[in-house]
Design a protein around this nucleic acid. Sequence first.
DNA 1: AGAGGCCAATTACCATGGAA
DNA 2: TTCCATGGTAATTGGCCTCT
Length: 323
Amino acid sequence: MIDKIKISLNDYSPNDNINWKSKEVKNCPPEKYFYKAKLYNSKFATKKFPLKLLLTANEKNNIFSLNIRGSIRKWYYQENSRKDLNSNEFDKCLKFIAEELNTELKTLLKGKITQLEVGVTLLLKSEMRNLIDCFVKYRNAERKIVKKTSLYFHFKNYNLIFYDKYLEINNNDIRPQKKRNVFNKFYLFRFEVNAKKVSGTILKSKFNTLEKLRNNWNQLPPMLEKYIDDIVFVDVISKEKETDIKDYPDFINHIAYMGIKKYGVIESINLFNKFVNTSNKKKKLEDFINIYRSNVTNELDLKRKLSTALAKKLDRLYNKSNI
DNA sequence: AGAGGCCAATTACCATGGAA
DNA sequence: TTCCATGGTAATTGGCCTCT
């Protein structure tokens, strides 16, 4: 479940086998010296997806501190795939990193986590392809579509990110027939909570050191599920219902639906947000969105399929499997 | 200089209850 | 019923400080 991470260790005795290269850092105290290096996973012959190291030497007290950053998921597997670290693999991964750094696991576990990306890739059917269009709102985040296939809910200290993992793995090139077949059949849906500043997010209390992250691993699944649950979801993929106007309220409802459809669900919600400012705005918005919902079928039951797929994946990740 | 921690201020969310 | 005010709680941000 853990992908990109930034860890800082306060007191670390540098491993001489690592090829440290000195680095210039402007505007910092004269007693400090900086060195950078790349850390590879020696369990593999390949040298890919290194973790980036920054070593700080303090001449005054002779203490070294170390920053580690990169995707431990890619580093551990040495590939970018749909696999996600389960708890056993996360443990092993930390052990390997400690070995490569030539330090004790318990030293590494004291490391503070300042940036963290928690994520999963779900294997969905291609009928779910446009799922991100159904994620119309999340709290007061800025909603942003990037390159048509990615969705960001943007906050100051973190983002919720959704994208097509299969396209990302293949650099958007799925021309070979074999890849095209996979693409036409499945949708590898990636969901990440990306904290740029752990101390400014909900992660700060339980996931701000490696040790806490390891001990509180079982609290990651409910957290991810809550994020998905809290997204305002509107099925914009399923077909619309046959028009059946029996009375005046039906008539008005249908006209409003046509208006929302013509204007766009997202745009309509934005306008609603701008114009409506009562104390029970949340409920009013629900009513407003229900106008749209009441006019479309739910033939694909997308929200439930998504929740089920997420729950299953999170359950497997708890230890048994990584896919 | 820029990243990040800490804590306080601000804002969003939600339940409750009385008024319209 | 629906509407609005209120208050508690949690989420998010801003400011100020330290460290690399």
